[in-house]
Amino acid sequence: MLTRTGTAMACTAVALVALGTWADYPELVTLGLAAAATLLVATLWLVAAPRLTVVREVRPHRVFEGTAARAALTVTNAGRRRSPPLQVTETAGGRRTAVPVPALAAGDSCTVGYALPLTTRGRYLIPPVLLGHSDPLRLMHRGRARGAELVVHVYPRVHPLATVEVGGPQDAEGPTNNSAPLGGAAFHSLREYAPGDDRRHIHWGATARTGTVMTRHVVVPDEPRQLVVLDTSTTPYPGPHFEDAVRVAASFCVAAENARLPFLLRTTGAVERESTGPALEFLSTVQKSHTDQGLAVLSERVRDVIAGAQGVALTVVTGHVDAQAAQLLMMLRPRFLSISLAELSAADNGIRPHGVLTVIATSSDQFAIHWNRLVLR
């Protein structure tokens, strides 16, 4: 591909040949042909491309807003002649980053590091890098895609939040389930013995009956589950507050994980995630939807949780809350251990559902301050 200098050279060559022919001026024709020959030499230079191997690493593949993801590119000259100076073009988030690589002798390697321009939450597909080089006069440039595609997730920014104390299990032993962590004292079921199991838990009666060594499967009793519901409708967010709501929802998920409390993230658009990794990965791409009915479908979204025997602490993250939504939260209050409302809004409309822990803030930073001040006092 011709560079700007190469394009000017080509235009000059054509003009000189045409002008020299018209004016019967052989010297101008000679200059034009010399310029054309220079372009031909530049083309042949690029045809004899250096043999290079490229290895690109991006670490980490998952970062939070405000934290830079960095790439490391290792270029090795696998040919027999010295490679010219190179320019690597990295495209990430719709922005291009040019990274120079010095000339390499045969067998030499060079590693260059650079930051990826990923500043907002999202899932980014990073295409292969474009490895290019030019002739000595910079008349022509050749670029070739090298490496593989990579995916980088930018998680929403997380604020440290205090957790609300809602009590322990609903009975002394506590109900159990298959996903409960091991190492507790509550009996859940019998299963086959596996290497590493405590031999004191072997059930000799079941072992004699089945002919297979059976052990007691004991787990930690279920603790109150933290249910976080993010409103993904468009109506409550007339401004840029949806991004703040996503950050607050992510902060509640991380706070529950740090407190070792089981939690579940749901949206009013019927999407749910459990455990911090999948929850944050989902929140990196979640968007508002015009078809989402918002808190109007909250009862449907939590019906299965209400029907369970385990206590649940509900946290609702939304924007503007109207009187109808407030009435719905008050109706649901007796069915949960507690209900917390995070309202990200530009103005306080004065609506605070009775019995619901409500914090209204204009940003996620302000919410974290108000929430911790309220919970920790």
Results as ranks from 00 to 15, higher is better:
Ala145Phe: 11
Gly196Lys: 07
Met140Gly: 05
Leu227Glu: 02
Trp204Tyr: 10
Leu130Glu: 13
His133Lys: 03
Pro221Arg: 00
Asp197Arg: 09
Ser189Arg: 09
His153Val: 07
Leu182Gln: 07
Arg138Val: 11
Val154Asn: 03
Asp171Leu: 11
Ala194Ser: 14
Val158Ser: 02
His159Val: 04
Asp222Pro: 02
Arg146Asn: 03
Pro169Trp: 00
Arg225Leu: 15
Phe187Leu: 11
Ala194Leu: 15
Asp222Met: 14
Gly211Gln: 12
Arg191Glu: 06
Gly196Met: 13
Ala206Lys: 05
Arg138Gly: 11
Val218Glu: 10
Val158Arg: 01
Gly174Asn: 00
Pro224Ser: 10
Pro175Asn: 13
His203Val: 03
Gly211Ala: 12
Glu173Trp: 01
His201Asp: 14
His133Trp: 15
Gly205Glu: 12
Gly205Val: 08
Pro156Phe: 04
Arg225Pro: 00
Gln170Ile: 04
Leu131Asp: 01
Pro136Cys: 08
Arg225Cys: 09
Val166Ile: 13
Phe187Arg: 01
Val213Pro: 06
Gly167Ala: 13
Asp222Phe: 00
Pro175Ser: 13
His153Gln: 15
Arg144Pro: 03
Gly196Ile: 09
Pro160Asn: 06
Pro160Met: 09
Tyr193Pro: 04
His217Asp: 15
Thr215His: 05
Ala194Gly: 08
Pro181Ile: 12
Leu190Val: 01
Arg209Gln: 06
Ala162Ile: 06
Arg209Glu: 06
Asp198Thr: 06
Arg142Pro: 00
Thr176Arg: 00
Leu130Trp: 03
His141Ile: 12
Pro160His: 13
Arg157Trp: 07
Gly205Asn: 13
Asp198Ala: 12
Gln226Phe: 04
